[in-house]
Design a protein around this nucleic acid. Sequence first.
DNA 1: ATGAAAGCGCTAACAG
DNA 2: CTGTTAGCGCTTTCAT
Lengths: 345, 345
Amino acid sequence: MTRPTKRPLTLRDVSDACGVSEMTVSRVLRKRGDVSQGTRDRVLAAAKALGYVPNQIAGSLASQRVNLVAVIIPSLSNMVFPEVLNGVNSAFEDTPLQPVVGVTDYLPEKEERVLYEMLSWRPSGVIIAGLEHSEATRAMLRNAGIPVVEIMDVDGTPVDAMVGISHRRAGREMARAILKEGYSKIGFMGTKMPLDHRARKRFEGLTEGLAKAGIEIEDRDFYSGGSALAKGREMTQAMLERSPDLDFLYYSNDMIGAGGLLWLLDQGVDIPGQIGLAGFNGVELLQGLPRQLATMDACRAEIGRAAAKIILDRTDPQGDDAAPAHITLTPTISPGDTLRRSRRG
Amino acid sequence: MTRPTKRPLTLRDVSDACGVSEMTVSRVLRKRGDVSQGTRDRVLAAAKALGYVPNQIAGSLASQRVNLVAVIIPSLSNMVFPEVLNGVNSAFEDTPLQPVVGVTDYLPEKEERVLYEMLSWRPSGVIIAGLEHSEATRAMLRNAGIPVVEIMDVDGTPVDAMVGISHRRAGREMARAILKEGYSKIGFMGTKMPLDHRARKRFEGLTEGLAKAGIEIEDRDFYSGGSALAKGREMTQAMLERSPDLDFLYYSNDMIGAGGLLWLLDQGVDIPGQIGLAGFNGVELLQGLPRQLATMDACRAEIGRAAAKIILDRTDPQGDDAAPAHITLTPTISPGDTLRRSRRG
DNA sequence: ATGAAAGCGCTAACAG
DNA sequence: CTGTTAGCGCTTTCAT
């Protein structure tokens, strides 16, 4: 039975307990090298009986290899990033690699601190959200000597590898879709986050796309804090009171879009006839709303999986001579029920 | 400037670069012991110029101290656990301790594996969701020789410390509130998760509470997978077709409750007159719905903060002689607009 | 198939 | 205030 010890057990303890050298115990526990079945069994039995847990700190120092991969994201409150993490997790399942998550709160200085902390554990790779980083952060990434995958966005120049979608293009495509359906008085609502570069790029893409047709955003508003759903309601109401002639509302995320949708339905507004709506992200949540909000999938889990695969490929065999992978995923518009003024089903 | 090296830099490199012993460099970098201002400056300058990042693997092995705290939770897809993590993060802000997250997918064997992996990094403490664990897991927790805080639930016996709410009591109190408002034909909907012990305890508490008034659940249903909001709609419709005389629906989480609420409003059902509703969790989301769903706060961020504080208290000074903390938080019912048949505002 | 020796990069403990 | 010495617990490498 496992008798509690103040000092954590070492290989030595197991070695003593079963009369086999530390080296052999180590080999058994790591399933490396040839060990006779009998010895193996005795070692395993002793280790289990004692409740021995190997010390990876010592192991990693000795072997100069660490099975950790740093994953650095802006937030956990968003549902977007947990989904990316699920993608990463699923790709690392059944591999020796393990993700370790750091959160930056969209703050460049915090990103710097978090990266420094993680690099001090000498991980085997880094997966980090976004392409915009402080110069110090970029320097650390460059000099770390490990694979680095920047994710979510491809509008920019990565330090090494990159996997994501073009948010600027997403905005442009949404503009095209909106115009194609005959809407022309467009309002925009989003988060007030100067540091959310991806939301900014979608907005820029939208205005670009509209500009090509000689159209400008008629109204816009930005919020911060609070329940996104509630904010969507409030902002939609405020905007329509201010600009009653709007015929389309583009939201920078599905949550506020859903809030707007619910409010408009309450008001008895004809959607998508009188007003069309679209959000961004393809959150699962939307499937339970009375109308399906038009949206665009951000390929979140897929991005996580692809990033993890890149790290695996670069880590596992010898093939890290390949050019850094640059993977652009293509999000698709789901028109749902809120973006089809011209042709109804 | 940081010139990329294949081999990561060591203290030795910094020592060479500034003509100071490794030991002194180490002291400067850790801000430990007295070092003259001049030396300090030279060391810092050299370290920055080289882009040196300390190796915590070596540091932790030498000092026998690791600034990591293992946080083990069932899922990231739930919004409940990210909120707990935010609580943990906030309490560790400005301390040397750092959370490292592991996800179990509600699987006991995976919990065991994840815990083993994390213990092999010799963390300074463990925060783990739930009180139900395999015997092997409990043994590891007992023998780890570090503070262990089991969180979310207090209906059971912890290995060491514990912070949470009584889900059984939450269910009972909801029963009382429901009965007090005059409802009597009660239906229940929840997740089909034999391993979600907290949802199970809420259900048991509810049936207990109703039983005291001689009342039994009239109908119940369980789902798995899919969008919770959509499931809430479907299940509510199905249940009311099956049991049209129900006058109250209790949902095991707010998401399916919100789905049910939206469906009932679509149908023009009088809420809470004809049918009352309640969920569980107090998710921020609800604040944007057309009616406020009655719910009960699970104190998620607070639980995370309190757990982190316990680890800090036990780690920081000498005071780990105190009895293990057992903290029971008290969730409060928010009746919202869906649980007040008798007295309207 | 097993063991012995050396050392991973850092810090505790002690000298000066 | 600064330097020296000896490990931390494991794995690598080389013997046997």
